[in-house]
């Protein structure tokens, strides 16, 4: 009896947001980034990053799905039968993704049309399932939830970063605000008479998925060269 009381006390002493919890949130943003270090979820990172707004939307969706699937699986981790563990995880992910899809369809139909299949493809995003298997099945709900948010944010940060480069250099706009281009809709009209920017033309390569691969490659390169922890010693 005395032992259990002590155990309960020990549990309560764990801070709600201590150093460990902070690391769960911060690590996936740099040292353990799902895209650049774990190299998960690359396919959607190449496909949806042509424009900033859709990338932001999909990042928010992934943060939501990651966090709540982690939380739910972690709550259920002791009652899930081992034989059907993967199926249960998939059902939880699929349910959350469908919720996101239905909500987006009601809130912003145009972005929903733009993202089309990619919302549904969050189900197959390796990051979500990977975190469930590697973290949520073995950790407590609160920490799993934070881990989900951290990984979602890590994914979203790279997505938005790549999207900013691709939209600005490929389309001459930022989040739909037209900055530079050859019609009068743009703030800087390169086609105007005597324009200083007559030499400018948008880089069409940036619109294609190949550009996303180069950009992610460059991000990985910069990150590895600045962070000694990531240098492969083998």
């Amino acid at each position: 009896m005395a032992e259990t009381v002590q155990a309960v006390e020990l549990q309560e002493k764990e801070p709600l947001f201590g150093a460990k919890e902070k690391r769960l949130l911060i690590d996936p943003l740099s040292d353990n980034n799902p895209i650049t270090v774990q190299v998960l979820g690359i396919c959607s990172a190449l496909a949806v990053t042509t424009l900033v707004i859709p990338s932001l939307v999909i990042s928010v969706a992934v943060v939501f799905v990651c966090a709540f699937s982690n939380l739910i699986i972690s709550l259920l981790r002791n009652v899930i039968p081992k034989q059907v563990r993967m199926i249960v995880q998939l059902v939880v992910i699929a349910t959350l993704v469908t919720i996101v899809e239905l909500t987006l369809k009601a809130v912003n139909f145009e972005v929903y049309k733009q993202l089309s299949v990619f919302i549904g493809l969050i189900i197959t995003n390796c990051i979500v399932m990977g975190r469930l298997e590697a973290f949520a099945m073995a950790n407590k709900p609160w920490r799993s939830f934070l881990d989900g948010i951290g990984n979602g944010l890590g994914y979203g940060a790279i997505l938005v970063l790549v999207a900013i480069f691709r939209e600005v250099f490929g389309k001459g706009s930022f989040a739909g605000i037209k900055i530079i281009g050859n019609t009068s809709d743009f703030m800087i009209n390169t086609a105007a008479d005597g324009s200083w920017f007559a030499w400018y033309s948008p880089n069409n390569l940036m619109v294609l998925p190949a550009a996303a691969m180069f950009l992610i490659g460059i991000v990985i390169w910069v990150q590895r060269s600045r962070n000694p922890k990531l240098v492969d010693i083998s």
């Binding site: 009652v79 039968p81 081992k82 059907v84 199926i87 249960v88 349910t95 469908t98 919720i99």
Partner: peptide, 23 residues
């Protein structure tokens, strides 16, 4: 038992019903 077939059936069915109702 957590590994028994009956439990697996019970678990998956309950889960399916909950998910179906929510969606």
């Amino acid at each position: 038992q957590r590994d028994s077939t009956n439990y697996v059936l019970f678990f998956t069915m309950t889960m399916t019903v909950i998910v179906a109702v929510v969606l």
